[in-house]
Simulated scan of single mutants.
Amino acid sequence: MVLIMQSTLIKTESTQTEVQPLHPLIVSTAYFFGLALLLAFSALVIHLEVTQINGSIGEDSLVECLQEGYLLITAGLFAAVAIKRSELRGFAFLVSAFFFIILIRELDSLFDQIHHGFWKYPAWLLATIAIGYAHSHKETSIDPLTNYISHKSYSLMLAGIATLFIFARIYGMSDLWQGVMQESYIRSVKNLAEEGMELLAYSLIMFAAGWYCLPELLKKGK
């Protein structure tokens, strides 16, 4: 009887060992489909904007609003981590401020109603506060930042930021599109290409933020 029980236990442990490698595969597949759905939604919004709403992408377009929405969610996720997880507060506050500053820059036309270039003042104020706080709370800034760099979502976040600040800027330069279209140059086409790349970047950034922040928010805070 004992031998039978031992044999059963060995088989059970063997089965669990064989099944365990499927877990990362399932998780990575779920992440893939989640990202795919997000990118599909972003692309469909661009399609809807051009074919059903405005026929082009301007300052007040649905695409611009979606970009700002993605930024707000990203900054809000890190802000929530800063509030709930005291041991990550300095790092999370700094990252949240970074994305809020980008959001402020995206809303420059709104701040221009106060004064042209007014967005720089709240942006500099927020940056000063965030850097000052992170510097004075190094114990919750440096180590969490180091740990974040080793997190799986960090590479996707880097890809999104690089796409936003480098690729989208170069890809959206007027010289490129004037060279392609020659005398038939249409600025709305150039805007579509640039804003589309920016929306792609914001989609990657928001997904990476959710990948990191949501599990942290589900943990018990200290």
Results as ranks from 00 to 15, higher is better:
residue 2 V to R: 08
residue 3 L to F: 12
residue 3 L to T: 14
residue 7 S to V: 04
residue 9 L to N: 03
residue 10 I to M: 01
residue 11 K to N: 15
residue 15 T to F: 13
residue 16 Q to K: 13
residue 17 T to E: 09
residue 18 E to C: 01
residue 19 V to P: 01
residue 20 Q to W: 13
residue 21 P to G: 02
residue 23 H to K: 14
residue 28 S to Q: 13
residue 30 A to S: 11
residue 32 F to S: 10
residue 33 F to G: 00
residue 34 G to H: 07
residue 38 L to N: 09
residue 41 F to N: 07
residue 46 I to S: 00
residue 51 T to Y: 10
residue 52 Q to C: 02
residue 55 G to F: 04
residue 57 I to V: 07
residue 59 E to P: 00
residue 61 S to P: 03
residue 62 L to T: 12
residue 63 V to P: 00
residue 66 L to A: 04
residue 71 L to N: 14
residue 72 L to P: 13
residue 75 A to N: 11
residue 75 A to H: 09
residue 77 L to T: 14
residue 81 V to I: 12
residue 87 E to C: 07
residue 90 G to S: 10
residue 90 G to K: 09
residue 91 F to G: 11
residue 93 F to Y: 14
residue 94 L to G: 10
residue 94 L to T: 08
residue 98 F to Q: 07
residue 100 F to P: 13
residue 101 I to R: 04
residue 104 I to A: 11
residue 105 R to D: 12
residue 106 E to D: 13
residue 107 L to I: 06
residue 111 F to R: 05
residue 113 Q to Y: 13
residue 114 I to D: 06
residue 115 H to F: 14
residue 118 F to L: 06
residue 119 W to K: 02
residue 119 W to T: 00
residue 120 K to N: 08
residue 122 P to F: 08
residue 122 P to A: 06
residue 126 L to A: 05
residue 126 L to I: 14
residue 126 L to Y: 05
residue 127 A to F: 12
residue 129 I to Y: 15
residue 129 I to S: 09
residue 135 H to G: 14
residue 135 H to R: 06
residue 137 H to A: 05
residue 143 D to Y: 09
residue 143 D to S: 11
residue 144 P to E: 08
residue 145 L to Q: 01
residue 148 Y to G: 11
residue 149 I to N: 06
residue 150 S to C: 03
residue 151 H to W: 03
residue 152 K to G: 06
residue 154 Y to H: 14
residue 156 L to F: 03
residue 158 L to F: 07
residue 159 A to I: 13
residue 160 G to A: 04
residue 161 I to G: 11
residue 162 A to D: 03
residue 164 L to C: 03
residue 167 F to L: 15
residue 168 A to C: 08
residue 169 R to S: 09
residue 171 Y to E: 05
residue 172 G to V: 05
residue 173 M to R: 09
residue 174 S to G: 02
residue 174 S to K: 13
residue 175 D to T: 10
residue 179 G to E: 10
residue 181 M to T: 03
residue 182 Q to M: 11
residue 184 S to H: 13
residue 185 Y to W: 13
residue 186 I to G: 00
residue 191 N to R: 08
residue 192 L to I: 05
residue 193 A to S: 12
residue 194 E to P: 04
residue 196 G to Y: 07
residue 196 G to D: 06
residue 197 M to N: 08
residue 198 E to D: 00
residue 199 L to I: 12
residue 202 Y to E: 11
residue 205 I to K: 03
residue 208 A to F: 00
residue 210 G to L: 03
residue 211 W to F: 14
residue 215 P to C: 04
residue 219 K to W: 06
residue 219 K to F: 02
residue 219 K to S: 00
residue 222 K to Y: 09
residue 222 K to T: 12
residue 222 K to L: 12
